[in-house]
């Protein structure tokens, strides 16, 4: 564990906590893409298959349970909670997320470290996480005013993978130049997808104005 990865995990955890707080406190999920949240549940389920078979550390197991639990509860709130589900922008959140999942799965079948169920699904989760934010970014462009909590949520979500990129650079130089192309390239794509959001988020923060993404 290094400080960059710990900061990345904490940023990731904070983003999820902020989203849960927004939903529970305001009883609203306006501006949040259910498609993206469902993709994240698939990412965690396919990535943490070895949760009960391989013990790495107390921290690792705890965080996996927290990420699984919170992401599933967010989808539950948005789908089934009687008040929250009324606030879901169903007609704007129209991104066909299967168009993202299927190519990622096919790619995982083609490019992976080893051809086992666990490894192919883990690789699928890495590819899927890279593009899972797209429905959310599309929804942000469609929704006129983005509330602060939603903006902060997306920013922290993008920041966590950027910190993981730094963690991978650090590990490359400190752990006998271990090369890990699949997470590296996926993480690079993932962080790059946030580039224009980061630009408008920082601009709105500097000028102290409402966050607005160009249509």
């Amino acid at each position: 564990m290094n400080v960059f990865r710990l900061a990345g995990d904490m940023t990731h955890l904070l983003s999820i906590i902020i989203l849960l707080l927004k939903i529970r406190a305001t009883k609203s999920c306006t501006g949040i893409s259910l498609k993206t949240q469902e993709l994240y549940v698939i990412v965690f389920l396919t990535r943490y298959l070895d949760l009960f078979t391989k013990y790495i550390s107390f921290y690792n197991t705890t965080m996996k349970l927290v990420f699984l639990g919170t992401s599933i509860s967010i989808v539950w709130y948005m789908r089934y909670h009687k008040v929250v589900k009324q606030t879901y922008n169903k007609d704007q959140d129209t991104f066909r997320h299967y168009f993202l999942a299927i190519p990622c799965f096919l790619l995982a079948l083609l490019i992976h470290h080893e051809f086992t169920v666990i490894e192919v699904l883990w690789t699928f989760s890495i590819y899927l996480e890279a593009v899972a934010i797209l429905p959310q970014l599309v929804l942000l462009q469609r929704s006129r005013n983005i509330d602060n909590l939603t903006g902060n949520y997306v920013f922290l979500l993008g920041a966590y993978r950027a910190l993981y990129l730094v963690n991978w650079v650090y590990r490359y130089f400190t752990e006998n130049h271990l090369v890990r192309w699949i997470p590296w390239l996926s993480g690079l794509v993932q962080t790059t997808l946030y580039a224009d959001f980061f630009y408008y988020y920082i601009k709105s923060w500097k000028n102290n104005e409402k966050l607005q993404l160009p249509a």
């Binding site: 990865r5 995990d9 990731h12 070895d50 391989k54 790495i56 550390s57 690792n60 965080m63 996996k64 990420f67 470290h113 080893e114 883990w122 993981y164 963690n167 752990e175 271990l178 890990r180 997470p183």
Partner: peptide
């Protein structure tokens, strides 16, 4: 092994 070393992240 390299395998182990790469799966200790979330």
């Amino acid at each position: 092994s390299e395998e182990e070393a790469t799966k200790d992240e979330l």
